[in-house]
Nucleic acid binder design. Structure first.
Lengths: 346, 346
DNA sequence: CCCCTTTGCTCAAACGTTTCAGCAAAGGAG
DNA sequence: CTCCTTTGCTGAAACGTTTGAGCAAAGGGG
């Protein structure tokens, strides 16, 4: 055993060729199952390669074939922000499932810090480290997304980007979901005074959910009270403070995601307001633990892993030259639990 | 704009060289800040490269320099299993933070299916796609881990591997944590009849937490009741059913992770057993939402993102030739909330 | 004024693959 | 027996980079 760190002596095509007594090309072609290599030779080379533990060098292969076999998941946010949200876990589940099935690798690229929106894109885009990219959770005003799409590199966007009409993207019916949950509060529970804690307004998701909220209010929309958060739990708590101070008799809060709803729940608890008796609360996303809180949170279920699956599938198809067109939209579903005032289901 | 999919014309060193009127080597050396290149030339080349949008081709660079600038996070489980656990999110947070800071990329490698423990390792190990690997959550009897460590490739193991004494690893004080939480139940709350829902016993984490549990029971250890789960919520629920059926007057349940504790909570609720009045419940991990359940879950906080940070740091150091020795162990902390019987903290 | 060092660059090889053109041998048709 | 096709392989080039050797010019010491 060599004392050098990382001193693994790699087996190359040349080693296999020498052992088999044929040329390097023959080995390469045999392993690629090229028709012009004899069956006997192929068999021999295959078993020899196996025996020697040959694995093709991915750098050399990529260089020569202009194909890395890797796709990048680009998230223009810091690591903390990204992985902190269960949404990305679900997305990753779907993406990695498809990539595994199709023999591709996954490069996860996040931004070092909030300033350099560029970095995450560029690293992958230019260096050819990935054959294509899935871009998740970019701000609507992020010019880099546009540049990336325009560059001709295969890219699938996660989410709805009205500004980039011809992009290939996979989104969910956020407007419908937000309207549905709002209407549930208004129609089923007869609540009129409903406030919304929105996400950051430079994200389309926030815009859509806000639009759905307003639509769901129907003709009482004039009373709409909206405070923006940042999708983080603490911002949900802050927003709730503000809402309660501004509108003491508030009947319901619709938070644009579950994490902010948790923050709201904490604040409501600390003010001894009972959910849903004193005030109803609903969230959005339905990741992980919404059903474990007390009361269990009524929310909108977003099929994030399906989104990941579709995004990965379409990206791989795109890379393989199968044309993909426009926006694909997956439906969300209203998940009624107790925090809206409905009775607990067993 | 070319009509071809992915038809991005890459700018190479040769293009920059031509524009600058120097050789390719000069450009390469200038960009690498080699001392034998004149200051004026360097400056000119740098601005020209910037202007043309040159980004080095990562495949070519890797091939020539035998360095990919990428490290792999290997998780010998399927995508679903991996990302489903908040533990990995936290790990990823730490890992990606360090990698970003040090200019490395992250390749996430999971297993296509449970059968082929090999695949996840091999893909990265041999193809040189990664300069090193962080292995998370492997079973203790996984021979591939041993092979990987023995291969000489830089590897950092997450967790405690007694069988591989000389491996570089980052773990947490699981035995201490489990003992602390058990002792809390026994000493502070005076509970004697405590059961444990363990994780799968082919994981060291489960073994350590079980050992800590037994240690924490002290001389009442004879009464120890243990049922194994699989770290999933549903298995926690099943285990709880079994425990309650076998020991009706049970005073407390210590689940080896929070997810199984959630499952236990669900089962206890459905039997109208009140926590902590009728029975105490504690978990382990403290990810995300343990404080949002009702009652808030007493648990042991595992600094998973710190583990990720340390693992990544040590791996990069290892790759750079800075020797790393043996096991590093990070402390866990007991996080007391309400489910053990302690009063709620405001 | 000559020789030696330093400076600033160029040349060429190498990393491990894939792929295309080509060539020898074998087989088949006439 | 000759010519053409097919079969089965080899040789060489190319992908874009890094790097060590080498070379010309400039500078400095004697």
């Amino acid at each position: 055993m060599s004392g050098r760190v990382g001193g693994v002596k790699a087996v190359t095509l040349a080693d296999v060729a020498a052992a088999a007594g044929v040329s390097v090309s023959a080995v390469s072609m045999a392993l690629a199952d090229h028709p012009r290599i004899g069956a006997r030779t192929k068999e021999q080379i295959h078993s020899l390669a196996e025996q020697l533990g040959y694995v093709s060098n991915s750098a050399a292969r990529s260089l020569r074939s202009q194909r890395s076999g890797t796709i990048a998941l680009i998230v223009p946010n810091t690591g903390q922000h990204v992985f902190g949200h269960p949404y990305f876990m679900q997305l990753l589940v779907g993406v990695s499932e498809v990539l595994n099935a199709r023999g591709a690798s996954l490069l996860v690229s996040t931004n070092p810090d909030e300033r350099h929106g560029l970095v995450a894109y560029e690293r992958v885009l230019r260096s050819k480290a990935g054959d294509g990219a899935i871009v998740a959770s970019a701000a609507v005003d992020d010019v880099n997304v546009l540049r990336l799409v325009d560059s001709g590199l295969p890219v699938v966007l996660v989410g709805h980007y009205p500004a980039i009409a011809d992009a290939v993207s996979v989104a969910v019916t956020d407007v419908d979901g937000a309207r549905a949950v709002t209407e549930h509060l208004r129609v089923v529970h007869g609540l009129k005074d409903i406030a919304h804690i929105s996400g950051p307004m430079n994200h389309q998701t926030s815009i859509d959910r806000l639009a759905g909220f307003k639509a769901g209010l129907g003709r009482v929309a004039g009373k709409a009270l909206v405070v923006a958060g940042d999708f983080g739990e603490e911002s949900g708590r802050q927003a709730t403070k503000e809402l309660l101070d501004r509108r003491p008799g508030l009947q319901a809060i619709f938070a644009a995601n579950d994490e902010m709803a948790y923050g709201a729940l904490l604040e409501l608890r600390s003010r001894d307001l009972r959910v849903p008796t004193d005030i109803a609360l609903v969230g959005y996303d339905d990741f992980g633990v919404s059903r474990l809180t007390t009361p269990a949170l009524t929310t909108v279920s977003v099929p994030a892993s399906d989104v990941g699956r579709r995004a990965a599938t379409r990206l791989l198809d795109l890379i393989e030259g199968i044309a993909q067109h426009g926006q694909e939209t997956l439906p969300v579903t209203l998940t009624v639990r107790e925090s809206c005032g409905c009775p607990p289901s067993t």
